[in-house]
Computed example of a mutant assay.
Amino acid sequence: MTTKIDITLSETKKEKPNVDQLEFGRVFTDHMFVMDYSATKGWYDPRIVPYGPISLSPSTMAFHYGQTVFEGLKAYRTKDDKVLLFRPNKNIERLNLSNDRLCIPQIDEELVIEALKQLVSIDKEWIPTAEGTSLYIRPFIIPTEYYLGVAPSKHYRFMIILSPVGSYYKEGIHPVKIFVENEYVRAVAGGTGTAKTGGNYASSLKAQDEAEKRGYSQVLWLDGLEKKYVEEVGSMNVFFKINGEVVTPALNGSILEGVTRNSIIHLLKHWGVPVSERRLSMEDLYKAYKEGQLEEAFGTGTAAVISPIGELFYNEERMVINNGETGDISMKLYDTLTGIQTGALEDIFNWVVNVNE
């Protein structure tokens, strides 16, 4: 990496929040990374500057056609004061896949990793040290051309902002209740489901809102064509343990390939646990439940790592899984992944990156 990243440090430091009062994505650190793009210059002027507002014209394309992409990952402080990133290369690789789908120019992955390390190092005092806490990292790209025509922008801005976040599970890891959605859909093959773009999340809000009104935490998404095959749960990938085998929906052109999903498949294979990626219908899942073979279910993602599912509501019937309790595989995966992420367990897969190396 030969590109120099200019650094302008903030003259004043913000007050850090109480670790017991951290909410996800509400508080932001002192600095941010910014880099711009033009069709004539390519990506240019990478810089770390004080965190603050940005000024954009009302005609900026970012406000009109949804040509945006983003990522989410975390930094962790170890007991011996090292700062670790978990598989950042996978997130940046996926960001470029999203860029390709949204007609956004590719970014230099090596440069972005270096920017991540420098930014997190500068603001490392913001990384909370209490159990379950971390520093959430949000890279994103927006189009910045002033134009109302429907076409790829000729100008972009890439930014990285940081936010200290508390433990996802305030009182320990607990299963959640999920509503099986059979009206709305998240994505279809050929659409933008494989990209991490804002529109996918905006379109999920209606189903999420209605599920919450029924007393459910999230929705289980089915495929957009036949509405019979399981795809994702909320904004997470989903796994089921059926008669000793762990099953997750195969990537099919509408499912986002999660970094946590990939890591879990690696771990299960390493442990010798049968795991498969395949098409799974809701009817087959229901049949497994009725026959007593649906042993565990859980969602996976950056925020929660593992989110056990204790109940599915399907066709006006409550499917209670594992007596509504967290299963052994779910707990072992959670403990192992968080242990690797925080440096408490040996990283035999070379997944973590030391910010200071």
Score class of each variant (00 low, 15 high):
residue 1 M to Y: 05
residue 5 I to Q: 02
residue 5 I to W: 05
residue 5 I to H: 05
residue 9 L to I: 12
residue 13 K to N: 08
residue 17 P to V: 15
residue 27 V to H: 11
residue 34 V to K: 06
residue 38 S to A: 12
residue 40 T to M: 07
residue 42 G to F: 11
residue 48 I to M: 01
residue 48 I to G: 00
residue 49 V to Y: 10
residue 49 V to E: 03
residue 56 L to V: 08
residue 58 P to V: 15
residue 60 T to S: 13
residue 63 F to E: 10
residue 64 H to T: 14
residue 66 G to I: 08
residue 68 T to K: 12
residue 74 K to Q: 14
residue 76 Y to K: 03
residue 78 T to Y: 15
residue 80 D to G: 12
residue 81 D to P: 08
residue 81 D to Y: 10
residue 82 K to L: 01
residue 88 P to H: 08
residue 91 N to Q: 09
residue 93 E to P: 04
residue 95 L to I: 13
residue 95 L to H: 05
residue 98 S to W: 03
residue 102 L to V: 12
residue 112 V to D: 00
residue 116 L to F: 10
residue 137 I to M: 02
residue 138 R to Y: 05
residue 146 Y to P: 03
residue 148 L to G: 03
residue 151 A to C: 14
residue 152 P to A: 10
residue 154 K to E: 07
residue 160 I to L: 09
residue 165 V to A: 10
residue 167 S to N: 13
residue 167 S to T: 07
residue 173 I to T: 00
residue 176 V to M: 11
residue 180 V to C: 00
residue 184 Y to W: 11
residue 191 G to V: 10
residue 194 T to Y: 00
residue 198 G to T: 10
residue 199 G to M: 06
residue 200 N to D: 08
residue 205 L to N: 13
residue 206 K to Y: 12
residue 207 A to M: 00
residue 210 E to D: 12
residue 211 A to T: 11
residue 212 E to W: 06
residue 215 G to M: 05
residue 218 Q to T: 01
residue 218 Q to S: 06
residue 220 L to M: 09
residue 221 W to V: 04
residue 227 K to P: 03
residue 229 Y to S: 10
residue 235 S to H: 08
residue 236 M to A: 13
residue 237 N to Y: 13
residue 240 F to E: 01
residue 241 K to V: 15
residue 254 S to D: 10
residue 260 T to F: 02
residue 262 N to Y: 10
residue 262 N to S: 11
residue 264 I to S: 00
residue 265 I to E: 07
residue 266 H to M: 15
residue 269 K to R: 08
residue 273 V to A: 02
residue 274 P to G: 01
residue 277 E to V: 06
residue 277 E to D: 12
residue 279 R to Y: 04
residue 283 E to F: 11
residue 287 K to P: 02
residue 288 A to H: 05
residue 289 Y to N: 01
residue 293 Q to Y: 06
residue 298 F to N: 05
residue 304 A to H: 09
residue 314 Y to G: 08
residue 318 R to T: 11
residue 318 R to V: 05
residue 320 V to R: 03
residue 324 G to S: 07
residue 325 E to R: 06
residue 326 T to S: 00
residue 327 G to L: 05
residue 329 I to E: 02
residue 332 K to T: 12
residue 335 D to Y: 02
residue 335 D to S: 05
residue 337 L to M: 13
residue 338 T to Q: 09
residue 347 D to E: 14
residue 355 V to P: 01
residue 357 E to A: 01
